[in-house]
Design a protein around this nucleic acid. Structure first.
Lengths: 219, 219
DNA sequence: TATTTTTTTGTACCATTTCGCAATAAATTC
DNA sequence: GAATTTATTGCGAAATGGTACAAAAAAATA
């Protein structure tokens, strides 16, 4: 529904080039299976998601799951990595587009809201904020990923604001770092509030208010 | 350490007045038991906290737990309510104190950081943001409490900013609602980042930057 | 003082779920 | 057919949420 962009790839760019694996062929596609696992973890969190749930959702039985992705924790980490990659792809373009700063921020938050509000049974918020951060206290590896996620977002926003200053859209006195942290904070607050089913309209109002403060009311 | 205010109540105002309960006396104090349960839920979340863990932490065996607080979900809700009450007490005074707006915000965030960074085995963040919001998708009652929590915080901040405008500390053009949402967003971002063990110094830097943007750089 | 009532505790249990794995069967290439 | 890779079944030990039931401790009553 969304990927109608780009010219229709007549020939798939990176055709899987089936390398003639030996042995019984897999009955699942690891990528889609991981996607299903991610959906579950996003919805229920780590502890409340059982291997049986994951097995049912992916269509793989437990031993296959285990063989393909390792134990539950590894599967969780791989799901989280996948989430981050997806998010990077979704937001990357918007972050790079050379739009006026206000427009750019609006687009970024719109994409974020799309991610946070998606979900069959209610909005799921942000994996980093909701689920991964919970595990972060106990698991150093996850904690490192989460921290890195925060830094990555801060940096991306900071680059936006620096660019805006260069283009004269922001006064020289503006502090790109501080603005970036505010922009991240706004991402975080809408992620959490989305999870509590705050309506999109209200979330957008918060976003608009924040943008006003960050780049000025002038449109 | 904090409640040295009010004259020392020579006679305890509401002395428990042991009302001669019949039957075998309780071997626990419900209040402290609930506190222990809250600690566990804050640390591990709902699903990862077992009744055995709760039983061990509170010193009550499972049937007693059940009799005193109901099933696990009820205990969770009561723990969350308790958390909110505690937080209200801790922050309420600071919110009400008639300090200059900057000082007031600094104090508020300092108290918040104290709450978020506490915990024997690592900082636990904010119950509302971390744990309760996770359950909010599935549980309408918890969701209502969480949403109410957001609103309550927004309102408290908004009152601060309105007061500051009245006192001429902020320009008439300042939008108290928008500023309040930014202030809440800052609370949320430090709550999450604390959970990922971001050092207090960095969190304070974020807070200071946010305050600068909200009330101006002038000290 | 002895007995009854009331309330809580402690032990034990149950049905279910959970994670992980071993053993075996199936499908494919060499 | 042999080798290799995956799928399926099903086991098992532990943990989970919840509860039944008797023993214990106190007040109320006789």
């Amino acid at each position: 529904m969304v990927q109608k962009n780009k010219k229709p790839p007549v020939t798939k760019i990176d055709a899987p080039v089936p390398p003639k694996r030996r042995g019984r062929p897999r009955a699942y596609e690891p990528d889609v299976a991981l996607g299903k696992a991610l959906d579950l973890f996003r919805k229920d969190g780590f502890a409340a998601t059982s291997l049986d749930d994951l097995s049912a959702a992916t269509g793989m039985n437990r031993p296959s799951l285990y063989g393909a992705f390792g134990d539950k924790r590894e599967l969780f980490i791989k799901s989280y990595r996948r989430y981050r990659e997806d998010a990077r792809v979704a937001m990357g373009n918007v972050f790079r587009d050379e739009l006026p700063i206000r427009k750019r921020l609006e687009r970024i938050y719109a994409v974020a809201l799309d991610i946070y509000l998606s979900g069959e049974s209610g909005p799921r918020g942000c994996f980093t904020v909701m689920t991964a951060a919970s595990e972060a206290v106990h698991d150093p590896d996850i904690r490192a990923m989460v921290l890195e996620g925060f830094v990555e977002l801060d940096k991306a926003f900071a680059a936006c604001f620096r660019r805006a200053k260069e283009k004269g859209e922001l006064p020289e006195s503006a502090d790109a770092i501080v603005l970036a942290q505010l922009a991240s904070a706004t991402i975080h607050t809408i992620a959490i509030r989305a999870r509590a089913r705050m309506p999109r309209k209200e979330l957008e109002a918060i976003v608009n208010g924040a943008i006003d403060v960050m780049v000025g009311t002038a449109r």
